[in-house]
Design a protein around this nucleic acid. Structure first.
Lengths: 190, 190
DNA sequence: GTCTATAGTCCGATAGAC
DNA sequence: GTCTATCGGACTATAGAC
């Protein structure tokens, strides 16, 4: 079917998995080669720039697909949407967070293009909220602000409870968090 | 005055700075030694376990001191407190975020004790909010929820705008964010 | 306590056979 | 395209002089 290289994709997939587990610096090209089923020298055929070229390819392959999740749904109130979103995001975010948390210490090394690619994932999340909120609130500026609050709140939850692995207090699930948010912010629409 | 070792503290300080700049894995013990003004072999006198022992010492030295900032202030409403906090946190959080963001990919390597030490920093932030909110709201359970929302929201802002270095849209400052939060959540008290 | 010297390992990368 | 073989360098850690 496809004439695209299997090995190239195998390298990207293996590298993605290893970077998520160990971080970029802690992962050696030998580990990537082993996981991809080839020798380190073979990787230089597809990635002339070596390890950093692989990093670039991995970043370009990251995509979160936030928007399409509720493109076909309509909501009557802000509260309805936020409660519905609380359920949806509980499924999506753990994976999303796992995919990018290892990147934080590497930002200094990234090219403009790679950095912009990651940033756009966050902007997409904000814009996805903003578009919804504008349909449910009369004040466009307020919809923009609220979209930032919700984005920051959810990504902060991800930061604390996934990245930091904070589990030693009574459980406070992502779903619980979402519904709390809906309750407090939903009132602002009235 | 103090009979404590100067070199030991110099190693911790140098390591802290380098870890913040480059991350733990990317920092070599030679770099730490150079910055501390000694040789790598000397570090093994104070840190028998080598590099990972230094990491432990650095983590133990991290402290954010959130509470005392407004221990002597009283607020009449939730909104008053959140608006005041918006200003305070703008000064504190950039430094706080810089101090811990490099740690994220290292959590797998940490001991129970070191992990708990970091987690307690977040719990302290939440508890600091919760205590305030209980004095300003009638519902204790709601105060707890709101404290999580605010904590997650602020640490999410830090994640996005400091760690991710997202600056390519129109400015949305930490102070702006705080006041937006105060406006939306302050209404919940009425 | 701090040093010099060095052991031993792993790293990223390249040359060249097939 | 993928391999074997190998280079020079950087790394963590240790031994032992002072």
């Amino acid at each position: 079917m496809s004439t695209e290289s299997n090995l190239r994709q195998a390298i990207i997939d293996s590298a993605t998995e290893l970077f998520m587990k160990q971080g970029y610096t802690a992962t050696s090209i030998k580990q990537i080669a082993n996981a991809a089923g080839c020798k380190t020298s073979s990787m230089y055929y597809y990635f002339e720039g070596g390890k950093s070229d692989i990093l670039g390819a991995v970043i370009q392959s990251l995509s979160f697909d936030m928007k399409h999740v509720f493109d076909d749904r309509e909501f009557e109130t802000l509260s309805d949407f936020l409660h519905y979103y609380a359920e949806i995001v509980s499924e999506i975010m753990p994976r999303m967070n796992r995919r990018i948390s290892w990147l934080a210490p590497e930002f200094r090394k990234l090219s403009e293009k790679e950095l912009a690619h990651i940033q756009n994932q966050f902007l997409d999340m904000h814009d996805s909220f903003e578009q919804r909120f504008k349909a449910l609130m009369s004040d466009d500026a307020a919809a923009n602000e609220l979209a930032w609050i919700v984005t920051c709140a959810y990504l902060g939850y991800g930061n604390i409870f996934f990245t930091i692995q904070m589990r030693n207090r009574e459980d406070y699930s992502l779903t619980d968090f979402g519904h709390s948010l809906a309750r407090f912010l939903g009132a602002s629409n009235a």
